[in-house]
């Protein structure tokens, strides 16, 4: 009954490669965390999914979180990051209420993120 599927091996290999890459990536990150960060605001629909969010600090979380930090904690979890410049300040207000409910973000954190998005929306 047992058949040999060459494609199956290919898939298994890819899965293994992805997992290995994932396990290696934290190491690469630790090195890069030492590099200075740019603070330029993200541009609309930036083609490259940025490796490190421009405003995020990669240091461990211990002090009170800022809107920018909360943005980088939450807004890349479920989908590719949506940048502040993609929407106007008024639009963000509605979208953040939507995300607050959908993603289960506490009200206070949601307001901090909203403030960050609005301040950097450019409109």
């Amino acid at each position: 009954m047992k058949k040999i599927h060459p494609q199956k091996n290919f898939v298994a290999l890819t899965l293994a490669a992805v997992l290995v890459a994932g396990l290696i990536s934290p190491l690469t990150f630790r090195v890069r965390a030492e590099e200075p960060k740019t603070t330029a605001p993200a541009t609309t629909n930036s083609v490259t999914p940025s490796a490190v969010s421009p405003t995020a600090s990669t240091s461990a979380l211990h002090k009170k979180l800022t809107g920018a930090e909360l943005y980088s904690i939450h807004c890349n979890r479920c989908h590719p990051e949506r940048f502040p410049t993609e929407r106007t300040a008024a639009q963000w207000k509605t979208i953040m209420l939507h995300m607050q409910v959908r993603a289960g973000i506490p009200g206070k954190q949601s307001r901090l993120i909203l403030q960050y998005l609005q301040e950097n929306s450019g409109r």
Binding site: H62, K64, L65, E69, I73, V101, G104, I105, P106
Partner: peptide, 16 residues
């Protein structure tokens, strides 16, 4: 539904 922050470091308890 909702979320409760656990401390100041961003940890959350989500419930619905």
């Amino acid at each position: 539904r909702g979320a409760l922050p656990l401390g100041e470091t961003g940890k959350l308890l989500n419930y619905s």
